[in-house]
Computed example of a mutant assay.
Amino acid sequence: MLLAPLLSACGHPVGVMEPVSISPTSTRPTQIEMLVATTRQPSGDPKTLFNGERSPKPFLTEVAVSIPAKRDSGTVQWPKKLPPDPVTDFAVTKVKQVATLQEGRSWFRQHLEGGHALVFVHGFNNRYEDSVFRLAQIVHDSDMKATPILFTWPSRASLFGYEYDKESTNYSRTALEQSLRLLAQDSNVKDITLLAHSMGTWLAMESLRQMGIRDGRVASKIKDVILASPDIDIQVFAKQYAEMGQPKPKFTIFVSQDDRALAASSLITGRVARLGGIDPTKEPYRSRLEAAGITAIDLTKVKTGDRLNHGKFAESPEIVQLIGQRLMTGQPLTDSNVTLGEGLTAVVGGTVETIGTVAATAAAAPVTILENKPKPEPGDLKQTLDSGRDPQPLTQ
């Protein structure tokens, strides 16, 4: 029953990565250029570029996507037939393989947006092209001023490939860590925002944890980490967070108690609550989120066209703007310039403030995941979130 809506959600043509030309007589669509790093295996087909199998080495590719002028914010305009029409559809207009790291650095410097870099990690059940179009949509609709970089890991894009996909995130964690490290070492980069969705949040957390264990802390240029619908066991997240070392980046999580994909994940993983499905206004979550400095934004009452309620962070025009204009620039959510419609409330440092009324709730601020022990020994990392059970279990 939980998988039924997932099965009916597919329907767009496959194989859109072969570049198309834009007619000089047509209205020029917006172009989003990105650098794509992947641990996927090359497919040998220019229509798909990479498949869902694992590659022993990573690949870099320059990709440009055109976005039609007439479309609703928050949507990806998939073509109804191939090749795509740039006037009405999202369409790839450029693909170029990057042979060396030097070429990658050169591309980045040519596309630098104020020294700000956005690294996006997609979630479960995604093809290469799905993640490319999603990042293009996020960058366009958020109006963010940052250089977009996509990290896409080997997903078989199958509803029945959950375990394979999860293992693929583990397979890819060192490659993501190295990608973040290379970015942080570039003198032209001022700051990095890491945005991850669904199962991709597990990969993001594992890579940051590895970096913290190696270096004693996460690279200082990684300023903001945004986890959307995180498909992570709550206790495991607590451990990952603790083992990153100090100081940590600023964390923001988007949660929703009506997320049907996370409800299915909870069933698959033994009815253990997922981080993306908690109610951050309820204890013990609220106090511990406040103690650790993690901002949690509850999107339960935000309505989008997503029947699974799993992609609200990208499909709500107001929320995607919030990401691009405030969260990834480190701005607070509690001033009069934030307006999101009806019902969004923020809890920051123990204070509750209303931010418009988008019919959602946000809990924010500094979650100690470490126990309050007097003078803890270095490396004595113990999580104190709770048993992992949600006070109000997720239902369909």
Rank of each mutant, 00 (worst) to 15 (best):
M1G: 14
L3C: 07
S8Y: 13
G11I: 00
P13L: 04
M17Q: 03
V20M: 08
V20A: 10
I22Q: 06
R28C: 02
R28P: 02
T30L: 13
T30R: 14
T30Y: 08
E33F: 08
E33R: 10
M34N: 00
L35V: 02
T38D: 04
S43W: 00
T48P: 11
L49I: 10
P58G: 12
S66K: 01
I67E: 07
P68H: 04
P68L: 02
A69Q: 14
V76C: 08
L82V: 06
P84E: 04
V87T: 14
A91I: 04
T93E: 14
Q97K: 12
V98L: 12
T100L: 12
T100Q: 06
L101N: 14
E103H: 00
S106P: 05
F108S: 15
R109I: 06
R109Q: 15
E113V: 05
A117V: 15
F120K: 05
V121I: 11
V121P: 01
N125V: 03
Y128W: 14
E129R: 07
V132A: 06
L135V: 04
P148N: 01
W153G: 04
A157K: 02
S158A: 12
S158Q: 09
L159P: 13
N170C: 11
S172T: 03
S172A: 03
A175G: 07
E177C: 09
L180A: 01
L180N: 01
Q185P: 09
D186M: 05
N188T: 12
K190Q: 12
K190C: 07
K190N: 12
D191G: 09
L194C: 00
A196Y: 07
S198Q: 02
T201M: 04
L203H: 05
M205W: 11
E206A: 04
S207M: 03
R209E: 09
R217V: 05
S220E: 14
S220H: 14
K221A: 10
I222A: 04
V225T: 05
P230Y: 07
D231R: 02
A238K: 00
Q240C: 15
A242V: 14
M244H: 02
Q246A: 12
F254V: 00
R260M: 09
R260H: 12
L262I: 05
A264Y: 13
L267Q: 13
R271P: 10
V272L: 13
R274G: 09
G276M: 05
G276P: 05
G277W: 11
G277V: 04
P280Y: 15
P280L: 10
P280E: 12
K282E: 15
P284V: 01
Y285H: 08
I297H: 06
D298C: 01
L299W: 04
T304I: 07
D306N: 00
R307M: 15
R307D: 15
H310G: 02
Q321D: 10
L322M: 01
M328E: 03
G330W: 07
P332S: 01
P332R: 00
L333W: 11
N337Q: 15
N337E: 14
T339M: 11
T339F: 10
G341H: 07
E342M: 11
E342G: 13
L344T: 06
V347K: 08
G350Q: 02
T354W: 11
T361E: 15
A362H: 07
A364D: 13
A365K: 12
T368H: 14
E377L: 15
P378V: 03
G379C: 03
L381I: 07
Q383K: 09
T384W: 08
L385H: 11
S387C: 12
P391T: 00
L394P: 07
Q396A: 10
